[in-house]
Nucleic acid binder design. Structure first.
Length: 882
RNA sequence: GGACGAAUAGCUCAGUUGGUCAGAGCACUUGACUUACAUUCAAGAGGUCGAAGGUUCGAGCCCUUCUUCGUCCACCA
């Protein structure tokens, strides 16, 4: 036995075991026909990421499941990797350049990408190291990156395949444009937030009679510069006579028609809508319908452009002010009202996005969505908690086409080339050349003067392939055959649309199979006030700091213990895990200091052996197995917090507080040692998925010849070891002990003071039972004498209590105040009495007797009897005392 | 405007086929440095289970309405 310090020190332990696990390749998984596979893919963190509590939670949950399955005998693959995170990473480098006073255009694409890769190589694995510190048992040798060469090939392949199937197209549409990132975004990447804005009412004069006009309302007055019509509802009587009349657009002095369109809601505002086809999705559609001009008034960086006339080059915010001022001067601004409305924000830089007309690449989503929705409807993929199913299906059923081109440089370049050969050809071959390999020449004119599309693909266009592209798909191979479809996916609700839904679509489309059968959606980590934890809010608790101070096990355990869907975290919370780790450590220490048995003697525990054991041992073994059964159920149903609480209660309360205290004196007996060691070892195995480090450390201390905990077998559930009658008898014993301790506390008896107690039990069988257990009880209540009798003794200057069939008398001559003791007894009685009253009322109810199931009635009758005799006993005590 | 979730002890949460279900952890009170552990031990106090109805012999649990908070979705200018 190596040295056992009285306090568990996580730091040294964690630094020791992590390299060991890695060196021994204990997390490596490979095709193994002997075993069933269990596969989880990590939600790849961004390379710009540093470990935050959200990661800590997400990966702890995965690690619990993965370690559990590994111990259960599955060939378990947890596939790790990182995401190149196009816009986010590009922003990091752009900020770097900005410090040098440069923009990316100043250094050029090649140099910019060089810097990006340099950064990636230097910092891109930061989060991987941090995940390792957490104890994540990924197969790290397989670590993938979404811009790895073969992964990129998969991305290109998928693009080309979809194009060939007609599911990718290029077109001019309104998309969300981030003027800061200067790129298009998908619908999901524009986060709508409620904003207190204003609604501006502007009068557009008639051409024929400028004194009169039509009033339109807008939240974005500057967009009027791009208006090409005003629309009214065709059924709206107020405006019928104006259809096709011409208005003069103020400030621009442009003639614009009044059009009739069903889109317009006559009840909103004035019932007349300004139409800006190039800067509003609805107006865009109307523009198409009515063949209106599309006037783009914005530079890509958000400044107004030359189409804005005198407002050219003003930033959109200044532009808004200037337009409003100008309208005011012209007397055309009817009113400004406060108006709260939702505005899109860039999910990467929080800038307000603009609806912007541009040429982009899109994926046609309906054909992909239908089978993906079906897979969930048919139950092939299950969401936990179940309610997310509905969220997913709603999105699938209302899906819009996906804008996948980004005007940035960091990412997978779109595999499309355009011919820039001679003029004749440029006209002839406007068809883009879409190819998995770099084409030599134009298939139409043979020119080798080709130019690749400047844009890159949305980051999510690569992550949606994650479950199979990480297994070196395409083509299908041994790994995909064996490990795919994966088993479960763990993620937060924020990325159901971004990632989960799209993986399901991609999986079905490209592999013909669902990518995973279970999706577990966990909560969001918040601070104690309920705010989302984030660096920018300054309320973040750094998990690495917690690991330093409390240990990785404590971090892992505490995060999940007593947490709901959302986690409210404060620093003190992590003490639970730290304390628990220390408790386990010390229980092991106690056993280790007292037991000489070796692991080799712990090979099996049979029913026969069990029969010969003392009651306490049978009790703890029974408790262990009833707990194990519940823990397994909890894990399988993703109820990790519940599993932890079960384990915590078993180990701390049953094992440490009671069992170890009960058997302390008997440590000399080999059989006692055996059970203590056995329960410790089995508990460590159950503990390991939750607290991998402390379990590994203790395991090596106690059982040095047994190898790593990582590959230990999960304890086998023996239902026949569960003995309800033993559990009941021991709990009676515990009740009696607790009641005596209560008396000690009530009468302020110093813990060192030995007392005398008398237990009177009428039933011979019970009497015998308590007689047999008197020595242990004596120890547990610190009594110098514990007398058993079947007589009912008259009390004199004693405290007393009733526990089940036992009447407890503690003589306290001199220390007791009879009057106070009577009050105490009355207190006890009044509690019992309320229960008694309620119960007798229920049993007096004929309807209850008639309609309730007989076993329930019997149970209640029994309870009533017990209460009754208890009350009688108390009554007698009171009489004795007076 | 829709959809969903939450409301149980001071705080964070359990309580999933309606019948010991009123619980845990933290915080609090009292006592103890009893050699595994003060990161501990023992004992205790604390809740009309958001409100009002309803179903039932019986309701944190099922139904209806309401209140408060939260989340997501949505083209109302």
């Amino acid at each position: 036995m190596k040295e056992f310090l009285p306090r568990y020190n996580p730091q040294t332990v964690e630094d020791k075991w992590w390299p060991f696990w890695e060196k021994e390749g204990l997390f490596h998984a490979q095709v193994n026909p002997e075993k069933k596979p269990f596969t989880v893919v990590i939600p790849p963190p961004n390379i710009t990421g540093v470990l935050h509590m959200g990661h800590a939670l997400n990966n702890t949950l995965q690690d619990i499941m993965v370690r559990y399955k590994r111990m259960k005998g599955f060939e378990t693959l947890w596939m790790p990797g990182t995401d190149h995170a196009g816009i986010a990473t590009q922003n990091v480098i752009e900020k770097q350049l900005a410090k040098e006073g440069k923009k990316r255009q100043d250094v050029g694409r090649e140099e910019f990408l060089r810097r990006l890769w340099e950064w990636k190589n230097q910092y891109g694995d930061t989060i991987i190291h941090q995940l390792k510190k957490l104890g994540a048992s990924c197969d790290w040798a397989r670590t993938r990156f979404t811009m790895d060469e073969d992964y990129s090939r998969a991305v290109t392949h998928v693009f080309v395949e979809l194009y060939k199937k007609g599911l990718i197209y290029q077109g001019d549409y309104i998309i969300h444009w981030c003027p800061r990132c200067q790129t298009a975004l998908s619908d999901e990447e524009a986060e709508h937030r409620q904003i207190e804005g204003a609604l501006y009412s502007i009068r557009y004069p008639f051409k024929k009679d400028p004194r009169k006009g039509i009033v339109v309302a807008t939240t974005r007055p500057e967009t009027m510069l791009g208006d090409t019509a005003v629309a009214v509802n065709p059924k709206d009587r107020r405006y019928k006579k104006f259809h096709s009349q011409i208005l003069v657009l103020p400030l621009m002095n442009r003639d614009i028609p009044i059009i009739a369109d069903d889109f317009v809601d006559p009840k909103f505002g004035t019932g007349a809508v300004k139409v800006t086809p190039a800067h509003d999705p609805n107006d865009f559609v109307m523009g198409k319908r009515h063949d209106l001009p599309f006037i783009n008034i914005l530079h890509p960086d958000g400044r107004l452009n030359q189409n804005a006339g005198e407002f050219n080059n003003l930033d959109r915010r200044e532009g808004r002010k200037a337009v409003v001022d100008a309208l005011k001067r012209l007397g055309l601004l009817e009113k400004i009202e406060p108006h709260s409305h939702a505005v899109g924000h860039c999910y990467r830089c929080n800038t307000i996005v603009e609806p912007y007309l541009s040429r982009q690449w899109f994926v046609k989503m309906k054909p992909l969505a239908q089978p993906a929705a079906r897979a969930v409807r048919q139950g092939k993929i299950k969401f936990t908690p179940h309610r997310w199913t509905k969220v997913y299906l709603h999105w699938m059923d209302h899906i819009q086409d996906w804008c996948i081109s980004r005007q940035i440089w960091w990412g997978h370049r779109i595999p499309v080339w355009y011919c820039v050969g001679d003029n004749a050809c440029r006209l002839a071959c406007r068809q883009p050349i879409v190819s998995e390999t770099i084409p030599d020449r134009c298939p139409h004119c043979g020119s080798s003067n080709l130019r690749q599309d400047e844009d890159v693909l949305d980051t999510w266009f690569s992550s949606w392939l994650w479950p199979f592209a990480t297994l070196s798909w395409p083509p299908e191979n041994k790994d995909t055959d064996y490990f795919y479809p994966t088993s479960a996916l763990f993620t937060a609700s924020e990325i159901i649309f971004f990632w989960v839904a799209r993986m399901i679509m991609a999986g079905i489309e490209f592999t013909g199979d669902i990518p995973f059968s279970e999706v577990y959606i966990h909560g969001t980590v918040r601070d104690a006030k309920g705010q989302k934890m984030s660096k920018s809010l300054g309320n973040a608790i750094n998990p690495l700091e917690i690991i330093r101070e409390y240990g990785a096990d404590a971090l892992r355990f505490s995060l999940i213990m007593n947490s709901g869907q959302d986690l409210y975290i404060s620093k003190e919370k992590f003490e639970v895990g730290r304390n628990f780790a220390n408790k386990i450590w010390n229980a092991a220490r106690l056993i280790g200091l007292n037991a000489e048995l070796k692991n080799s003697s712990l090979v099996s525990l049979t029913k026969g052996e069990l029969k010969q054991m003392d009651m306490y041992s049978r009790w703890i073994i029974s408790r262990f197995h009833s707990t194990l059964e519940k823990i397994e159920r909890a894990i399988e149903r993703f109820r990790f917090g519940e599993a932890e609480t079960l384990l915590y209660d078993f180990f701390w309360k049953n094992f440490c507080d009671w069992y170890l205290e009960m058997i302390k004196e008997g440590f000399g007996q080999p059989r006692i040692q055996f059970v203590a060691l056995w329960i410790l070892r089995e508990s460590l195995r159950v503990l390991h998925p939750f607290m991998p480090y402390v379990s590994e450390e203790i395991f090596h201390h106690m059982f040095p010849e047994s190898g790593s905990m990582v590959r230990q077998p999960w304890p086998k559930l023996e239902k026949s070891f569960i003995d309800r009658s033993v559990e009941k008898r021991v709990s009676h014993l515990i009740d009696v002990v607790t009641v005596i301790r209560n008396i000690r506390a009530q009468w302020n008896i110093n813990p060192q003071t030995e007392i005398t107690a008398i237990l009177s039990v009428e039933s011979p069988a019970e009497l015998n039972f308590f007689k047999k257990n008197a020595p242990v009880m004596k120890k547990l209540v610190n009594a110098k004498e514990l007398n058993l009798t079947d007589e009912i003794l008259k009390l004199e200057e004693s405290a007393s209590a009733i526990a089940g069939p036992v009447r407890i008398i503690v003589p306290l001559k001199g220390t007791i105040d009879i009057q106070k003791e009577k009050e105490r007894i009355k207190d006890q009685m009044s509690q019992q009495n309320t229960l008694y009253q309620n119960l007798s009322l229920r049993l007096a109810n004929k309807e209850f007797l008639k309609k309730a199931p007989p076993d329930v009635v019997d149970k209640e009758k029994e309870r009533l009897q017990i209460l009754k005799s208890k009350l009688q006993e108390y009554q007698r005590v009171l009489q004795d005392l007076s």
